[in-house]
Design a protein around this nucleic acid. Sequence first.
DNA 1: GTCTATAGATTGATAGAC
DNA 2: GTCTATCAATCTATAGAC
Lengths: 178, 178
Amino acid sequence: MRTKLLDRAEELARSRGFDAFSFADLARHAQIAKPSVHHHFATKAKLSQALILRYNERIADALTEIAETSATPRRCLERFVDLYREAAQDGQALCLCVAFSAGRSSLDDDVLDALAAFHTGVLGWLRAALSAHGRPEREAESVLALVEGAQLMARASVDIARFDAATAPFVASLAQQG
Amino acid sequence: MRTKLLDRAEELARSRGFDAFSFADLARHAQIAKPSVHHHFATKAKLSQALILRYNERIADALTEIAETSATPRRCLERFVDLYREAAQDGQALCLCVAFSAGRSSLDDDVLDALAAFHTGVLGWLRAALSAHGRPEREAESVLALVEGAQLMARASVDIARFDAATAPFVASLAQQG
DNA sequence: GTCTATAGATTGATAGAC
DNA sequence: GTCTATCAATCTATAGAC
């Protein structure tokens, strides 16, 4: 049940913005009464925190898997871009982290800490991947900003082509080197 | 009064997310009664539309001014990055367009059209600026995604340094050429 | 763990007087 | 153009029975 509630909350937060999901909606979707949601998550802040912590772990696992199974550093970075491309869901959704960064409630301290931890983790992974490919590590922030911004543009136009257009030059630059 | 209301709405939308501003808040700030706001903007959707249309014009004017007064194509693109840097307000706010792209109500048709027009305008400007600098026009989407994503990261960490770190490689690449 | 019932606040919006 | 009064809906959250 906990998982079911989190799944729905994530879906709504990513497709319609952080403030878009309500206890009423989660309850309806899980087919329980609205106050029953509070048994699993005392407050909305706690729910938000659980949401981003779970997302954190999932992405971390995905990145580890990519790093371990990619034949070349180039392929590794290509799959990173693809990970964010899939998260964009044809321009209809955003990475949970992007949705939280733009939302009001992200000012909650615990959530903000979790958000910072997310960025730190991804940036660390990116630095290692870039380094393995022979590129400067300081490009990590650029690459993360690029894919996050690309998601935003794709959502604004509800067209994944915008994501591809934005990331194409970076992907092409990977081919030129290693 | 209309301007006063729009100013407050923009401030809230950019600093706390699109869904953060309410008629009650606008009324309080303008020191009029809450229903009086409806005299200026019949619905919240109309208000949102007016908000982004005004933003559209302001940015278009700023970009025209930059294009006309920059000594070199390189300086022109540097000032573009600076425009977005200032809009980030030390990591406490977002470009209105970014805030709208992430929010729920951006699904409103009129607002979505205005959002698309905004992107089209900025991308057109960027293509001309990049071309003048001897870079491929297809980098326009990348540059826009970069500065929008950089704003998002700066806001997540409430630290403008993240914006600078993300945009630094691009700015450096401008110096190498023209 | 789930329920009914409800509190208490806030939301966008309307009617009608001045 | 502004006001008072009010509406219906929605929100998060709590109390207490089963």
